[in-house]
Design a protein around this nucleic acid. Structure first.
Lengths: 124, 124
DNA sequence: TCAATACTTCAATAATTGTTGTATTATTGA
DNA sequence: TCAATAATACAACAATTATTGAAGTATTGA
């Protein structure tokens, strides 16, 4: 992960439409959705959605596979994990527990179970 | 966390300069840096840096406190955790382990130790 | 008090990004 | 084959964002 890759991912998620698309595809997981389903779910004109899908695919935030005349899009989850790693590299110069001393409602550094990405159940 | 908040955070990190600023401040942790130190570290004209710091502060990605004639900036780490939670809410409709079955090099769902935010040591 | 320092604001301009409608490509099923 | 469907490409225009230099505000220390 380098600065350019990271900024293009962030740029991809800096529009309300693209963020909605991404969250929708995170929700559907490996099944993904074809472009028309995304357009219907979000109520967007196909030409505008296509513009945004292209941007997200170019940033590698989405993957796409052809199925006949359909294009199926999926969220690239591993890339998001890479991005988080990049953001927190050298956190507090190697002492990440300090980053959260300031915060009240976070106990992430005391617990190994606080990352939503690593849990299958968040509502016990 | 709502769509608008999240897109403004992503917009904040969609410029190479702002991403450099954020990562620099993550690295310095609670100590933070004053504006002049950031400008010196990144080699930026103060007027341009000020523009970017204002954008990041407005998005709440940075906090700022006055110290005499200095302005000290710090990264808002808890906000980043909120953002990650927002992105992964309803991941795979409640079955996040599926999101990573596609990936080869990630074992996050088998291990509770893979989140950089929850570790104090990443290089054993 | 006053010059120097730290930083921000403002205005002008440049560059990038977003939206829409129309046209085009490719695939399917009758 | 051919009309219908799915989606993308292009062009025009609108809107937003970035950069710079000059001017302004506030604080400090001599």
């Amino acid at each position: 992960m380098d600065n350019n890759t990271a900024t293009s991912i962030f740029g991809s998620l800096s529009s309300g439409i693209r963020l909605d698309v991404y969250r929708l595809l995170v929700k559907t997981g490996p099944a993904g959705l074809v472009a028309g389903e995304i357009a219907a779910a979000l109520g967007l004109p196909s030409t505008n959605l296509s513009f945004h899908l292209k941007a997200m695919t170019h940033a590698q935030l989405l993957g796409v596979t052809q199925e006949g005349r359909f294009q199926r899009y999926r969220a690239n989850m591993p890339l998001m994990l890479d991005l988080i790693t990049y953001l927190t590299e050298e956190c507090c110069s190697g002492h990440p527990e300090q980053c959260f001393d300031q915060a009240s409602a976070f106990d992430c550094c005391e617990s190994e179970l606080s990352n939503p990405l690593t849990q299958t159940e968040t509502k016990p």
